[in-house]
Amino acid sequence: MFNDNQFISLIRGTGQQFSGWDFSFITGTGRVQSGLLPWSYGSMILPFVQNAGTVLDMGTGGGEFLANVRPLPDTVYATEGYKPNIPIASKRLTPLGVKVVPLEEDDALPFNDAYFDLIINRHESYSLREVRRIISDEGMFITQQVGGTDCSEINERLGVSVDEEYADWHLNTASKEIANHHFEIIDCQEAFPLQRFYDIGALVYYLKAIPWQVADFDTEKYMKRLYQIHQIIQTKGYFEVKQHRFIILAKAI
Rank of each mutant, 00 (worst) to 15 (best):
N5Y: 06
L10C: 05
G13A: 13
F18T: 09
S19H: 08
S19K: 06
G20R: 02
G20S: 07
D22I: 05
F23M: 15
F23I: 11
F25D: 15
I26M: 05
T27Y: 10
R31K: 08
G35H: 08
S40A: 10
G42R: 11
S43V: 06
S43L: 08
M44H: 15
V49L: 14
Q50T: 11
Q50N: 15
N51I: 02
A52H: 08
L56A: 07
L56F: 10
D57N: 15
T60Y: 08
G63C: 10
G63D: 03
F65S: 00
A67M: 05
N68T: 03
N68R: 03
L72P: 04
P73G: 00
A78N: 05
G81I: 07
Y82E: 10
K83P: 15
P84G: 04
P84K: 01
N85L: 03
N85E: 06
P87Q: 06
A89M: 07
L93H: 10
L93P: 09
T94R: 12
P95S: 12
L96H: 13
G97L: 05
K99A: 13
V101Y: 13
V101F: 11
E104H: 07
E105F: 13
L109K: 00
D113L: 07
A114L: 14
Y115Q: 09
N121I: 00
R122F: 04
R132G: 01
R133N: 05
R133Q: 07
R133E: 07
I134F: 14
D137W: 03
M140E: 04
M140I: 09
F141R: 00
T143K: 00
Q144W: 12
Q144S: 09
V146W: 00
G147W: 02
G147T: 06
C151H: 08
I154C: 09
R157L: 04
R157P: 00
R157F: 08
G159K: 02
G159M: 02
V160F: 04
S161G: 06
D163F: 10
D168V: 06
L171T: 09
T173L: 06
I178F: 04
A179L: 08
N180P: 04
H181D: 02
H182E: 09
F183G: 01
I185S: 10
I186H: 05
Q189R: 09
Q195N: 11
Q195L: 09
D199W: 10
D199G: 11
I200F: 11
I200P: 13
V204D: 06
Y206H: 15
K208A: 08
K208T: 07
Q213T: 14
V214L: 12
A215D: 07
A215M: 12
F217C: 14
F217I: 15
F217V: 12
T219Q: 11
E220N: 14
E220T: 15
E220W: 05
Y222C: 03
K224C: 06
Q231M: 13
Q231S: 13
Q231A: 12
I233V: 05
I233L: 00
T235A: 10
K236V: 05
F239V: 03
F239D: 01
E240D: 07
K242P: 02
K242H: 13
R245L: 03
I247N: 04
I248N: 02
K251C: 03
A252L: 01
I253E: 07
